[in-house]
């Protein structure tokens, strides 16, 4: 794809054209500003806050640290890809437990929690803390976020 400004990304199962973009743009920027997917949030732009967490080829990564044009031929899932309008069980649990205050970190946390529970349906408390250690929340103090995760685990167990 040398010298071209056009490339295409597979986001939430759909092939999306990116046109007229500077090739140095991060995936976060392309998602938000070019593909109309503003769910992933940008805060630190250096991989510290986790607000921009997306799934690329099965791995949870910071989209601010992905050169968008290098993510061609990968499967990208954003927060928008988890729901077709209805809330997911993780989102509902965040609401029920009051795990959302300003809400800026929430999309990244929701993606990280879905990813954790897909791979580890019954994580230990330490495992939950470790899995969410890359998602910084400055409002809740994490207690309610952990309570929301516990709620989801219990609900899924009863299903």
């Amino acid at each position: 794809m040398s010298e071209t400004q056009f490339y295409s990304l597979r986001v939430n199962g759909k092939q999306r054209e990116v046109t007229d973009a500077w090739l140095g743009e991060s995936l976060l920027y392309v998602l938000r500003e070019r593909l109309g997917l503003p769910g992933s949030k940008g805060a630190c732009e250096q991989g510290e806050c986790g607000s921009c967490t997306v799934i690329i080829d099965g791995a949870a990564v910071c989209s601010c640290l992905v050169l968008a044009a290098s993510a061609v031929d990968t499967d990208i899932t954003t927060i928008e890809g988890y729901s077709d309008g209805a809330l997911t069980d993780v989102q509902q649990a965040f609401i029920d437990e009051g795990a959302v205050q300003c809400g800026f970190c929430t999309p990244g946390l929701i993606v990280a929690v879905h990813h954790l529970l897909e791979h580890t349906p019954r994580p230990s408390e330490m495992k939950v803390k470790e899995a969410l250690s890359g998602n910084i929340c400055r409002c809740t103090g994490y207690g309610r976020i952990f309570a929301a995760v516990t709620r989801v685990i219990e609900q899924r167990d009863h299903q």
């Binding site: 090739l23 140095g24 991060s26 732009e45 250096q46 991989g47 601010c64 640290l65 050169l67």
Partner: peptide, 18 residues
């Protein structure tokens, strides 16, 4: 460009061009 965790920080903060 490998994992991008150093490279993209520099790009995002305009420390070096691409």
């Amino acid at each position: 460009l490998a994992g991008g965790t150093d490279f993209m920080v520099e790009v995002n903060f305009n420390k070096h061009g691409v």
